[in-house]
Design a protein around this nucleic acid. Structure first.
Lengths: 176, 176
DNA sequence: AGTTTTATGTCAACGGTCCTGACATAAATC
DNA sequence: GATTTATGTCAGGACCGTTGACATAAAACT
């Protein structure tokens, strides 16, 4: 533990150990804002051309991640109402990007998968985002990425964290 | 450099050195989504009660950060059209949260500052967010926070990065 | 002095994304 | 047979962004 005079010196020089000041927190909040805006800007452009929005991207993404997911499962992940999802999902099915088939065990369910075309479009959307993330990760280095991952995970509500993280990390991982 | 068999072992065990795989990038993208959703959830609740939205929060935040900022300056930071800003800014001025005074040098400009009430409200909004950030930072530790900061900064478009970062880091910092 | 540019405000119309409330259907379950 | 569950859909509304067009006042230019 640094003694008081060391602390004062650190404060003057902005040492890493002082990372919980109001100032650092404000900087963190602003970085969240600007980074997220940049992060969503690439796919937004592609989506615009096709007349879709961010919600379509998220829907395609999580169906791609969990092929055969039910509508209820998707609602859980997205955290929206079924009416909101319907307006997004219906065009995707009609446009042939998503397949919706009744479940075999429970025929009330509609199990969702991407069509070939859906996979291709989702791939194009994610491509831009992965590009950006990849550039940032490469430039920052592995340790920074580990830190990024930790902070992001800890930002999630503690109640929901385990569920979300197990979903994020324990994936079918078909693309590798 | 690890030899091929070590690489295989690392892949199996998810070592830090492999941080640019498609899988890690997908995980990063999903963390961005879930963390940002959590990040905005707290102020959203407070704003709802007052009949405001996220846009009002951002507006109050950046006026608070740059007292005396012009409308054009604010538009630059927010990246929206003046019509969009007007719909947000007008109620804030009418409700007495923001002061709008003509510039002395250039009387066409409207220079914006938070009123006492505006500062209080903005403080309450940021409080929840700072709380969340603070918890995450404390639990993650200083090195993780440094990594988080690096990755977030590198996510921003290279053209805009310097401008944005100088705005984020070089602040009046009145609150300390 | 007169023209042009700049900073701002405002009206109208529209699109995307979310919401709540209400109702309908089919299938599973009790 | 009654109830619960999974899903779909209609109606209406809120917020937040857009574009286009026009207006005003002040600054800057020729």
């Amino acid at each position: 533990m640094p003694d008081p005079s060391t602390l004062r010196a650190l404060r003057r020089h902005g040492d890493d150990r002082l990372f919980l000041t109001g100032r650092k927190l404000r900087e963190g909040a602003e970085l969240m804002f600007f980074a997220y805006r940049a992060f969503t800007s690439d796919p937004d452009r592609i989506l615009d051309e096709k007349g879709y929005g961010r919600a379509h991207h998220r829907t395609l993404h999580f169906i791609g991640r969990r092929p055969g997911i039910s509508v209820a499962g998707l609602l859980d992940i997205l955290g929206i109402t079924k009416q909101s999802l319907a307006r997004v999902l219906k065009p995707l099915v009609e446009d042939g990007l998503v397949d919706s088939v009744p479940g075999q065990k429970d025929r009330r369910q509609r199990l969702l998968t991407l069509t070939e075309e859906g996979r291709a479009f989702e791939g194009a959307l994610s491509e831009a985002q992965r590009e950006r993330l990849s550039r940032a990760f490469r430039a920052a280095g592995p340790e920074a990425v580990a830190g990024f991952r930790d902070v992001m995970a800890l930002m999630i509500d503690e109640d929901a964290r385990d569920d979300i993280l197990s979903m994020v990390y324990d994936a079918p991982d078909a693309a590798e």
